[in-house]
Design a protein around this nucleic acid. Structure first.
Lengths: 213, 213
DNA sequence: GATAATATATAGACCAGTTGGTATAATAGC
DNA sequence: GCTATTATACCAACTGGTCTATATATTATC
């Protein structure tokens, strides 16, 4: 039982990621999920807004899990965060540059429209931010700097996804990963560590012939 | 004559910035602009898509002008770019955190939906990117690094706007400005310049008591 | 310089299709 | 028999878009 509920949530997550809030119709959701409208309003009496909120929270938790897992696995914050951003780049590329930022579009669309959804997105971003912040602090970055750097990471990640989708290329996120990695290495272990980051030499060979703008 | 055309474009820019593409109806645009539907389809036979494209190009040029003016006025790239981001933060704050990224929402909404609008956004972002890239290169950043840093700047700027709007606070953009300024100073004039950037000391006093997540 | 002819532009009624949402009836599982 | 769930029919409001009638300039003709 309640399998229809899960289906509804799953489908909603995918469509929101692909099209955003206003372009995704309730009828489209029920068509894609198989469950009829009766079930939708049975499980989500609050209608589209409530369904969206639960879908965002669901996908927000999943992404938080991925962030934490990845950051725990890799050692120094610079490599860990750079690696995570490249992982996101891979996902965006795999979707044909049609998806990959499951919160972003909805967050922008509803920030001025629905206080409920705005707060929901704010909570999710705060949780992601905190995961980055903790990793940075544990890796030797001064606490105030860690918060600042976590914000830069989150902003550049979301902005990088936007650029990748508009350019149909993973290049922006790769560049973001590279630049952030340099900065974090510099700020966590002192100036010496940033002089020649390990990942750059082999990466730049394969990418340098692309257009420069 | 053609005053109605300008009105239409102006109104469309504002509504797109506020609500995005799909939430902004043609009827809403004509209501807000005063011009009737007949005029809309007279000036923009291509309908909503064409009107949107011209509106985006219009606002894209305006923003490009602001970027270039600001970057030309301030000397070192680190200060110039940091300052510009703080300028954007001011605008977002002044709108009550309801607007400030006139391209972003539409870019995300239409990246997978309208090739025409996707290309339009791609062109605009390319022009902005190039303005940052040139400034960085002129300021002493190695050419390959300049392209990378310009991407980080653009991504963090757009992502920062997103975070400010969801949090109803200019803090994210201020943090982005601070972190970027440090990084650019470090990469443009060598390691020594980043050790104690001038803008930090006085800025941090007034902001440090805010919440850290 | 008055008037007719012609673009230019405005006005809004109208369209089929869709939106989010409600109602009620049928059906399953215990 | 009773609750939990599903299945539709239906709703007013709105969507982007088309169409034709009208007004307002601009230009050409006498």
């Amino acid at each position: 039982m309640a399998a229809a509920r899960d289906q509804l949530l799953q489908t909603t997550c995918e469509l929101l990621d692909l099209q955003g809030y206003y372009a995704t119709g309730l009828n489209e959701i029920i068509r894609a999920s198989g469950s009829p409208k009766g079930s939708l309003y049975y499980y989500f009496p609050g209608g589209k807004e409530e369904l969206t909120e639960e879908a965002l929270e669901h996908v927000g938790r999943i992404v938080l899990g991925r962030i934490e897992t990845h950051l725990r696995a890799v050692g120094p914050p610079s490599d860990a965060i750079g690696g995570f951003i490249r992982l996101v780049a891979e996902n965006v590329e795999a979707s044909g540059y049609k998806a990959g930022g499951p919160i972003t579009t909805v967050a922008l669309e509803t920030a001025a429209t629905s206080e409920r959804l705005r707060c929901c997105c704010e909570r999710i971003y705060a949780a992601w931010h905190d995961a980055f912040r903790r990793k940075l602090a544990e890796g030797g970055v001064r606490p105030e700097r860690a918060a600042e750097l976590a914000t830069l990471t989150l902003a550049a990640l979301e902005g990088g996804i936007l650029l990748c989708r508009t350019q149909r290329s993973r290049r922006p996120l790769d560049q973001v990963a590279g630049a952030l990695q340099t900065l974090i290495a510099y700020l966590s272990t002192g100036a010496a560590a940033a002089r020649q980051p390990a990942h750059r030499r082999k990466r730049e060979q394969g990418e340098q012939r692309a257009k420069s703008e």
